[in-house]
């Protein structure tokens, strides 16, 4: 492919993915509210537009025009920086996830992935591990004890569960023999890895929920005990940025689960992108379902579960998979 065309295609892909991501983040809030209301046998947002479809837009406009408050005792520089630090990793991690097969367009073959890097999975884990900065720094800079406690909790929680998350995908790596997500999807042409790695998938899913700070692992922002946790002092667009980061993380993690365990864009009859989105939203629905069903863990339960159950389980999974791969 000639260089200018390459750059045009690249920019177009980035623009499309970024735009869709923003749109999905906005409508995920609507989806979550609707699904949870269904679980609780009520209607949810209905006023703004048909079935409340314009609610995210109304919310966005409202947040934009809210007063932006910075607490007097806050560390201003970091207070302002922290929401951005939460948002950026959430968005750039999508760069290595393949969302479709190679297609031919205008006589060029185009990969349906922004960048197929050799160390794609490691890149994702690297970027994901940066998400904790936004939360910890936001909690500290607010100069509020609830916020600080939320920040500290989330630091401990995210480091602990990142470990098991990393170990849970080692089985997939051994089976696919690659760190590139495109090749991992390629390796699932015969069987999805959820069939070969059911325990790995389960551990991954649990850790993913913990990493995105969602119920039942939403201790960093537990409303009933920490008011709102690390973002209690945030208002207006800064609050919105935390909110967007959380939902963007949810999409990324669901996309990763789809890519690693559910065969990525693979599927019969329908076009690959449709399959990818269908699986993605299935995982997201699962997340919402879990949130509507399970109560929150206590902090010591959370730590014990992460270190004494998930970690040994993940290690055992690796040993078994390794034996399987070696004997094959």
């Amino acid at each position: 492919m000639p260089e200018p065309a390459f750059f045009v295609v690249m920019l177009a892909k980035i623009a499309v993915v970024f735009g869709l991501m923003l749109l999905s983040v906005a409508y995920l809030t609507w989806l979550e509210r609707k699904v949870i209301s269904d679980f609780q046998v009520r209607l949810g947002p209905m006023r703004v537009g048909p079935h409340g479809l314009l609610q995210p837009i109304a919310d966005g406009i409202k947040l934009m025009f809210k007063e932006d408050i910075i607490p007097e005792a806050a560390d201003r520089a970091i207070y302002v920086l922290a929401p951005t630090l939460a948002l950026i990793p959430a968005f750039i991690s999508f760069a290595v996830i393949p969302f479709g097969d190679r297609v031919r367009l205008f006589g060029q073959s185009i990969d349906m992935v922004i960048s197929d890097v050799n160390v794609g999975l490691l890149y994702l884990f690297g970027v994901a591990s940066l998400g904790v900065y936004g939360i910890v720094l936001g909690g500290w800079a607010s100069n509020n004890k609830y916020a600080l406690l939320g920040g500290l909790r989330s630091a401990a929680q995210m480091i602990s569960y990142e470990l098991s998350m990393g170990l849970s995908v080692v089985g997939v790596l051994m089976l696919s023999e690659s760190l590139s997500l495109v090749r991992i999807v390629g390796a699932q042409s015969k069987a999805w890895f959820i069939l070969l790695q059911p325990i790995g998938f389960l551990i991954f899913l649990i850790c993913a929920i913990a990493e995105t700070n969602r119920a039942p692992f939403d201790l960093p922002e537990a409303e009933t005990e920490l008011v709102a946790g690390f973002h209690v002092e945030y208002s207006s667009m800064k609050f919105a940025m935390y909110f967007m980061a959380e939902y963007a993380n949810m999409i990324t993690v669901a996309a990763l689960a789809t890519t690693l365990f559910l065969g990525g864009w693979r599927g019969p009859f329908l076009p690959p992108v449709v399959w990818f989105l269908a699986k993605l939203y299935l995982v997201i629905f699962l997340f919402i379902w879990i949130r509507a069903t399970l109560p929150r863990f206590r902090y010591d339960q959370l730590m014990r579960f992460g270190w004494k159950v998930l970690l040994p389980l993940a290690l055992a999974n690796i040993v078994i998979t390794a034996a399987f791969v070696a004997l094959r």
Partner: peptide, 14 residues
């Protein structure tokens, strides 16, 4: 990035 920025410095901050 994973080890230094993602783990070691988070521990320091903690």
């Amino acid at each position: 990035v994973i080890i230094y920025a993602g783990a070691i410095m988070v521990l320091f901050l903690f």
